[in-house]
Write a protein that binds this DNA or RNA. Structure first.
Lengths: 380, 380
DNA sequence: CTAATTAGGTCAAAGGTCTA
DNA sequence: GTAGACCTTTGACCTAATTA
């Protein structure tokens, strides 16, 4: 009667209006208020994936509260005193970085991707990835990463050299299909690259399979168990990307500030679920580790001549000078990215030394050189 | 009080209100709920005409339940089981790990250390560390690490092989003077090893100095800026140590639980200071990175013959077989640790392969082998 | 000014706990 | 394992403050 037919977005019972930011029933409304007021820390007796519906909503308070937050309820909307029913307006956060900026950046680069979640269903149709395919995926992801970064105002305000540094440094973690995107795309039991190959745990290439096993065990599984949300993922990506310790950074301080912002946003996005924020941040060390192993394996594969690492990627990831085939293959890379609003230009040939940078990212030199070309600034 | 003089319509005891559709006492209320929930089918031993009153209500369940229904109780009014309310259970489920346990573990291993903060004042008196000195420091720290771990009950409850795994895996991060202990001991502008050497930023050994610079820039400085407390440091150490992704772990789940505990303790230790918890956890990736570089440099130094890496440490950190000098040097190591309640026994000689484990920790093999000696279990 | 919303509050009757 | 005295949580229903 009082509700125009809408359902509670938490338990699908009849909603009595919007409460604390989400259409909900009186039960969930009261539950949320009590939980926030008493600062309750529930624990799930199962695996934090309980079904929350009208019948079962009282069976797990942890999962019910989690769903309240995910449905959009904000704890700030719960007022403490009776006469504080004022200020009902929407308050905007202080910093320029916000969840919505990050979500939009994610969304608008998703459209460039040829791969869509809907096409995800048929695993058997996918080809098995060899080292070369992984490299190809990494290259594609790297182009997307630039697009993504450009949609974040704080990124655009950085010095151009630092922008380049950040993209390059985070390539193995984010742009590389290696870790981040693999987590995102993968099935429970099979890593899938951005270009729709699967990496089998027991495949023809032993070393690749080893990485696949680590991805599943150390990254995909914990993230599935946490059941990470889009917002959380977006924040995590920003935290990884804005790395103040990134080598070669001119002014790390602005980067540190942005990461701080992102980190606080993640904390808020986890909605007070006990321990969740920490568990999400603790994904970073294994992510870093797996990303490095990935790069290691590519290097190894290159040495053994098992794979034809694309020259552009080789230049970028391994810090080697472009080979004779560079011109042709980078031209292809440029073609392949015609539908991007910007491309990463072919890197000028040249040796960048063979010093083994510990972050395993000698690509910096290549990109820094690239970025100093006057006409390239428009791309960043 | 709450019952306005009405009687239980089943047994005529004092009613505590309407329950399931009938005015009833707590006894009949509970009896009805249990009966319906468990779907009990009682039988009457007499002629199904038993008297049900306050005194005799427990003499025939069949007749009591029948009277409940006749009084108007409806089984539809009995709901599904709900979540647990109890908070007493959380007291023990919260685990034995606490701030005080961690602080005590820290304190009681500090006493073994020859180095004391008070002796810290005169930097100029300290010797400049060469690679060999760094190794010596790492060895000492590793012994301390075992002592530290043994004072944490959760550690002692783990399978012996997993205990060994954890010590070895975290050696470069914690036991190794490389990162953690260096941060702790160091001045603002000069890293100091556990054995009281300084690592100069511009010293005779270029590679060592590079690491020193990273330690200062990426670890010491941020930690100074945060002005980390003892409690926070203790938690951070535990978080690093209890690494569920540690390779070779038999049962990662208990380790993950302990790390969760430690992580939540750190959150509490930061006392609600906005962003502080996150900033502290974000120290882990650079810590990991620096630790790896440290191990890398040791390996490099060994290859170049610049340093005489102690055989025990070599065995443990680089995964190489003990050299000819092993017996002598491990004997020295044992002597040096006479005042520990346990020592790490000399590792039996043997090759452990030269496969480059990505975590840069081939030591696992060495320690696992060690741990399988029956008489060695007492040391863990 | 009134209606629509959505804060806050109440308390009967669900639930669970725990000793005997 | 059950019984039942005792405590907590739920949610339907209420009032009140703000806003269109």
């Amino acid at each position: 009667l009082r509700t125009n037919g809408s359902l509670c977005s938490i338990c699908a019972d009849r909603a009595t209006g919007k409460h604390y930011g989400a259409a909900s029933c009186d039960g969930c409304k009261g539950f949320f208020r009590r939980s926030v007021r008493k600062n309750h820390a529930y624990t799930c007796r199962f695996s934090r994936q309980c079904v929350v519906d009208k019948d079962k909503r009282n069976q797990c308070r942890y999962c019910r509260l989690k769903k309240c937050f995910r449905a959009g309820m904000r704890k700030e909307a719960v007022q403490n005193e009776r006469d504080r029913i004022s200020c009902r307006r929407e308050g905007q956060a202080a910093g320029s970085l916000s969840i919505s900026v990050l979500l939009q950046a994610e969304a608008s680069t998703q459209q460039f991707s040829s791969w869509t979640p809907a096409a995800h269903s048929d695993i058997t149709a996918k080809k098995i990835a060899l080292v070369g395919d992984v490299c190809e995926s990494m290259k594609q992801q790297l182009l997307l990463l630039v697009e993504w970064a450009k949609r974040i105002p704080d990124f655009c305000e950085l010095p151009v050299d630092d922008r380049v540094c950040l993209v390059i440094d985070s390539a193995p973690h984010l742009g590389g299909g290696s870790a981040y995107s693999l987590c995102w795309n993968s099935h429970d039991d099979l890593p899938v690259t951005g270009n729709d190959f699967v990496i089998p745990v027991s495949g023809p290439e032993l070393e690749v399979s080893k990485v696949a096993a680590r991805i599943l065990e150390e990254l995909v599984r914990p993230l599935r168990e946490l059941d990470i949300t889009d917002s959380e993922f977006a924040c995590l990506k920003a935290i990884i990307f804005f790395a103040p310790d990134c080598p070669g950074l001119e002014s790390p301080q602005p980067v540190r500030r942005v990461r701080f912002q992102a980190q606080v946003l993640l904390d808020e996005a986890t909605c007070e679920q006990r321990g969740r924020f920490g568990e999400l941040l603790l994904m970073l060390p294994p992510l870093q580790s797996v990303a490095w192993q990935m790069v290691e394996q590519l290097q190894l594969a290159r040495l053994l001549g098992e794979a034809s690492v694309d020259s552009l990627l080789q230049e970028m990831l391994l810090g080697e000078g472009a080979s004779a085939a560079a011109t042709a293959s980078t031209a292809a890379a440029t073609r392949a990215s015609d539908n991007f609003t910007s491309v990463i230009l072919p890197v000028p040939t040249g040796k960048f030394g063979s010093i083994y940078h510990f972050n395993m990212l000698n690509l910096r030199g290549a990109f820094l050189k690239f970025s100093r070309q006057a006409d390239s600034e428009q791309y960043f």
